[in-house]
Simulated assay, not measured.
Amino acid sequence: MPVTALVSAKSCGTTASALALTLASRRPSLLAECDPAGGTIRAGFLQGAVTAGYGLYHLAAAERIGRSELANAFAHHLWGIDDAGHRKLLPGLTDPAQAPALTRTWPALAEVLKVLAADAGHDVFVDVGRLALEAGRLHPTLTPAPLLHAADFVLLTVRANDQSLTLARHLIEPLRTELDEHGTGSDALGLLLIEDGPYRPTQVATALHTPVLAALPWDAETAGYLTTGGRPPRGYARSPLLRHARSATDQLDALAQRRSIYLNRSAPDANLAGVLQRLTNARGGSRG
């Protein structure tokens, strides 16, 4: 199953889109909220149900002990976001000042996410948030580059309007260079189009010289629920956003299977295999 990282040039619905993809997946799925600027799902969609005792920041101390400890901590800090417990969240940072502590944790976390996708059959989505550049390259602290390097796909989230395309344009080449030099190749880069604006997918792909790998409709009511939580809107499970998100996960899976033929990936660290058993009996809480 693929690991898909979602990034943006500026706030444009990346987190709501990542939640929609995670909730709509046909398989067990995970959303890792890894925006160094801080997570919003804890206070938004989950309406404060998750305390600061859960989440990404706690993985840094575990990683300093060892990879197995990181795997155990990872499973312990997951939070169920559906009643059945098949869809889980790794809550993000509560304070951007915590981000530097995770600099050496990102590569190990990337390996855990690969194990979860390859060995446990999960769809894994990583909300990286807004990308930061320094001298034309990814910022070493404000962007968790190792998560992008390990991803099967890196989706730059854009809206179908001039403002969003203008902001996104300057990120394309730095991302291509980064993925060619350190990742799985620049062909991992694609667009996640939010159809909020006058341009069609083919026009957006042409404007940014990058393929649209997935498109989601502008569904303000459902997106609002995924952003702020509360009572689900009427017909939520059959909403346009979730229906298209389900199709998008299918498309990404098919693309990942075809792409894997050409990738020569190393085997995941065997010491992380324990994460699979931990996930089966995860002690994390549940939204239900």
Rank of each mutant, 00 (worst) to 15 (best):
L102E: 08
L171C: 03
A150C: 07
G284C: 08
A168I: 11
G92R: 01
H77N: 14
L46F: 07
I81Q: 00
A150H: 10
A145Q: 14
L23M: 14
L179K: 11
L138F: 10
V115M: 13
R278V: 00
L46I: 07
V128D: 01
V275N: 02
V112M: 15
A118F: 04
L142A: 12
R258M: 12
P146N: 07
R104A: 15
L21K: 00
D180C: 08
I172F: 11
G288R: 05
A18Y: 03
H170V: 14
A52V: 11
A9P: 06
A188R: 04
A207S: 07
G229V: 07
V275Q: 03
T157E: 09
A71N: 02
D95C: 03
R27I: 00
P100D: 09
H244T: 13
G136E: 08
G190E: 07
G229S: 05
D82S: 08
R104G: 10
R159H: 07
L216A: 05
G13N: 07
Y262K: 12
T166L: 14
A132Q: 11
P240Q: 06
A267H: 14
E178N: 08
T4M: 03
A9H: 09
V126E: 07
G235T: 11
M1T: 06
D253R: 14
N281E: 11
P211Q: 06
L31W: 01
D82T: 10
A97V: 11
L192G: 02
S286I: 12
T202L: 13
T222Y: 03
G55K: 00
R42Y: 04
Y236G: 00
R258I: 07
H139A: 12
A188I: 00
S17C: 03
D253C: 03
P96N: 09
H76M: 12
A270N: 10
A20R: 04
I261S: 14
L255D: 13
H58K: 09
G235Q: 12
L30M: 03
L138R: 09
T228Q: 13
S164T: 06
G197T: 06
A135F: 08
R67M: 06
S260K: 12
L242P: 09
T4W: 05
H170N: 10
G80P: 05
